[in-house]
Design a binder for these strands. Structure first.
Length: 270
DNA sequence: CTAAAATCCTGGTGGC
DNA sequence: TGCCACCAGGATTTTA
């Protein structure tokens, strides 16, 4: 569930607190959460200092000394909690990182989908990601060029992290609504003007998400308020905020997809 | 090639 | 009240 705005909010909250900390140990509670060599992370991570903390797509990237990286993907139910080493440990904690100053970073993940990587070649995890939609360097022209030789329907493409990084089910639906485009439209039917609307929709929706500290749908991620600004996501049967038509729900790429059949008729036939 | 479906997971929910 | 099928979904893998 954490998508770009939620991950960005999490990183902003942790960055200053974690910067400069030096790892002392790691405790692995769920083996599968570690997706790189177990021997390396347990022996090489201790002693490494955190240089910086950043976000790439939905990944949290710790840049460490000597060109090592600790990369975490929260997937659906992951959380990162900064505690004291002797604080009570929640049963869903899958991995604990300890620091020399007595603090501890807990990776809590009920669903066990989350992943931890410790490696030097960060491209092996991040290399195939599409562009960052909010980067200053990400221009409309670049966005439009992404559609070259692309086929298929719009929403599955927006969810494809190799196409563009950071969109998940919520922000993909909201972006389609804001752009006035049907989520099932074939992308080869999109004209430049549609891509332009979509470009501004994606950036606007993500910016709005970050301004609201992300969306809090359940106890997994708290503190955000973007859920109060949803136009279509999770609003099946409710009145469209623009035209009062009931929001419809269909399944695309195995995902719940919400849209207004009246407002999102842009380039019909799908 | 695309695209759909299965996979990994747990907890909450709705039906009976 | 208890049981169970089913749903949620990010990214990868398998199957059609």
């Amino acid at each position: 569930m954490p998508e770009l705005p939620e991950v960005e909010t999490i990183v902003r909250g942790l960055r200053n607190q974690l910067k400069g900390k030096v790892f002392s140990a790691i405790e692995i509670g769920w083996e599968n959460s570690i997706r790189t060599d177990r021997e390396e992370i347990t022996t090489i991570l201790p002693g490494k200092r955190i240089i910086s903390l950043d976000r790439r797509g939905k990944y949290i990237v710790f840049t460490l000394q000597h060109e090592w990286y600790l990369i975490i993907h929260l997937k659906m139910s992951g959380r990162l909690l900064l505690q004291h080493a002797d604080d009570e440990v929640h049963p869903h904690v899958r991995t604990s990182f300890f620091f020399h100053d007595g603090s501890s970073l807990r990776f809590q993940d009920m669903r066990k989908f989350g992943r931890v990587y410790f490696l030097q070649n960060s491209d092996s995890v991040l290399g195939n990601l599409g562009p960052e939609p909010l980067a200053d360097s990400f221009t409309l022209q670049e966005f439009q060029s992404l559609f070259e030789k692309r086929t298929g329907r719009l929403k599955p493409l927006l969810l494809n992290q190799q196409f563009i990084a950071g969109l998940g089910n919520i922000y993909a639906d909201e972006s389609c609504f804001t752009a006035g485009l049907h989520p099932a439209i074939s992308v080869n039917m999109l004209k430049k003007k549609h891509m332009k609307k979509l470009y501004h929709a994606i950036r606007g929706v993500l910016e709005c998400g970050i301004m609201n500290n992300g969306a809090s749908l359940d106890e997994i991620y708290q503190g955000g308020s973007f859920q109060n600004h949803f136009c279509v996501y999770g609003r099946t049967g409710k009145a469209c905020t623009t035209c009062q038509t009931p929001i419809e729900r269909i399944v695309l790429a195995g995902r719940s997809t919400h849209f207004c059949p009246s407002c999102q008729g842009g380039t019909r036939r799908h």
